[in-house]
Amino acid sequence: MPTGRATRAITGLFDAVFRPSRFVRAPNAATRTSIRSTLRRLRGLSVVFVVNVVLYATPLTLSGFGVAVESDAPAWFVPIGRSVLGNPDTAWWLLAGIAQNSVFITAISGLTLLTYHAALIVTRSSEGFLLTLHTVVYSVSAYLAGIFTVLVFLSRAGPFATARELVINVQVRFIAVMYDVFGVPPSQRVFTLGDPVPASRLSPSETTILAVLGVLVLYFAYSMYLGARLNHGAGVTSAALSLLAVGLSPVLYVAALLVYSTGGLML
């Protein structure tokens, strides 16, 4: 059924761009189903997520991004690697690279799932975890992966140096605010705020790529909003609050990293 899969992939891509409501809507959304049916849907969603994360991480790995594993394949992996790619070391290098490149998007997806569902429960709009999972899996697979792809592209493309500096500057500013909130001493700060990057240095192609980034961010936010509205039947306020919770995910992520790296809170 490769033709059917290709058609579904094209339709999915079309829906992701032109019909986000159809893209994130859970088909046959029923709040009470059998355990068997729940497990089947859980498995289906897991496959969608894993396939999309691998599709996102493989080109990065093949282009050499984020690959730090240089050790030989372990003994238990040698027969598997040999049967898959012929060379077990290459297969191990590829697998480790894909895993490494998937870590961040997987972590932020998990955090998004938690904050989003917690917000839906708090606002008493939740119609079940599976519906939240469906929304997050599809939103992350398409839009968040798109955002990360653009960011990786910016980090590697030579002609986009100013755009890259601008994006990094925004992220460092955010982390600096978190440093101040958590009272991290300057000696323990990994990132230091540099000079502001003048936007006047941006070339037309850089303004275009930053606009694409902006569109993807808007799509991601809109898809999460639609997920709450369509899949959970949430009201406008509840959906907006759930979206706000998703917006807080990076705050929680950085906070967790700071607590982990500094060994405790200093509020």
């Binding site: 003048p198 936007a199 941006l202 037309p204 303004t207 606009a211 902006g214 569109v215 808007l218």
Partner: peptide, 11 residues
Amino acid sequence: AAERTEIAANL
């Protein structure tokens, strides 16, 4: 900056 407005216009 004019470039910021350009980003918004592109968006």
